[in-house]
Simulated assay, not measured.
Amino acid sequence: MSPRPPRSPAGNSRASKPGARARSAPRASASTARPAPTAGRASDKPGDRIAKLLARAGVASRREIERMIADGRIALNGEVLETPATILTSLAGVTVDGKPVAAPEAPRLFLFHKPQGLLTAERDPKGRPTIYNALRNALPPGTPRLMPIGRLDLNTEGLLLLTNDGELKRAMELPANGIPRTYRARAFGDISQAELETLIEGVTIDGVNYGRIDANLERRTGRNQWIEMTLTEGKNREVRRVLEHLGLKVSRLMRLSYGPFALGDLPRGQASEVRQKDLEQFRRHIATRGGWR
């Protein structure tokens, strides 16, 4: 069996409910919504795109921020922005849904033991419970708004990482960075270790290419077996689809680790914050090596 990534120590720092968004501010008409004079483009001024700055401040991911701009929810000095290409040196004068954006906090990272039956989403049109329902009780007061790093589907349990920093979220989700995720699956059917080892070269299923997967048969009871799998892409329902392709039916799936951060003995439904020194060490590792090596 391949070695399991080491568990990162987690301290008891202060933490809270993810912040709720305010009501959308009235959208300006196309004739009045002009770019503010203090905004520029990459070729004109130094600075960063507004989506990058807002992601760093923990408002949302870059892609979500681009959608928010398209919906007229973000303004600068009272003028509704029309393009995510706006370049700024700070978030002074920027509002989201009519509320000023607070200065970015230091990046923080939390481990959450997600139970089955929770959606990895902020809200659900069907009214099903989400991770944020559980996080209200799992996080101490004072935690900034948190975003999930990757997703676990409704019936998958285990380690879910959450951060207030959009850049950290993006770096950890980026397939090019090759950050390993380890899962344990209980599956019904017949499979051999030799068959599992063919996944080390990747596999194509219904036109979708899945990269290298390190899979090990842990134990077998009758036709039920526990299989540990480590992968780096994290495509939608990847573990389930690969095992179903091999003729197995998954009855339970748990994520054990993500990079160096491990679920360990964290109780179901509880959260714990990664110590700042461990987070900074991980960020330096990714920045200096250009990914997970």
Rank of each mutant, 00 (worst) to 15 (best):
Q193M: 01
G178D: 05
K235E: 02
D206C: 08
E167Y: 06
G202Y: 08
M172A: 00
L139S: 05
G211W: 04
A171Y: 05
N224Y: 07
R241N: 06
P175K: 13
N177E: 10
T232K: 11
E233C: 02
Y183F: 03
N209E: 14
R223M: 10
I131N: 12
T198F: 04
L162W: 10
T156H: 09
N236H: 14
L196F: 06
R184I: 01
A134N: 01
D190S: 12
I131H: 03
N137F: 10
A194L: 08
M172H: 00
R186P: 06
G158Y: 03
G189Y: 06
I191W: 00
V208T: 15
R145I: 10
A194I: 07
P144I: 07
P144C: 09
P140G: 14
P140Q: 11
T204S: 09
P148H: 13
E218I: 09
T143E: 15
Q193W: 00
G142E: 12
A215N: 03
V239C: 06
L139E: 00
R184V: 06
L174T: 13
R212E: 10
S192E: 13
P140K: 13
G222P: 03
M147Y: 11
E173H: 10
G150W: 06
N164K: 09
L139M: 09
R184Y: 00
N177D: 06
R237I: 07
D206L: 10
A134D: 07
L231T: 03
L139I: 05
R240W: 09
S192C: 07
T230P: 06
R181W: 08
N216E: 15
Y132H: 08
N137K: 12
I200P: 00
T143M: 15
A187I: 01
T156D: 04
S192T: 15
L146H: 05
A194G: 04
V203M: 06
D153F: 10
T182D: 03
L199M: 14
R170S: 13
K169I: 07
M229E: 00
A187E: 04
A138M: 03
L174P: 03
A171S: 09
E197Q: 12
R241Q: 07
E167F: 08
R181D: 10
R181C: 00
I205P: 03
R223T: 11
E218V: 11
I227F: 00
R186Q: 13
L160Y: 10
E228Y: 00
I205F: 02
L161A: 03
G207M: 13
T163R: 02
D214L: 04
Y132S: 07
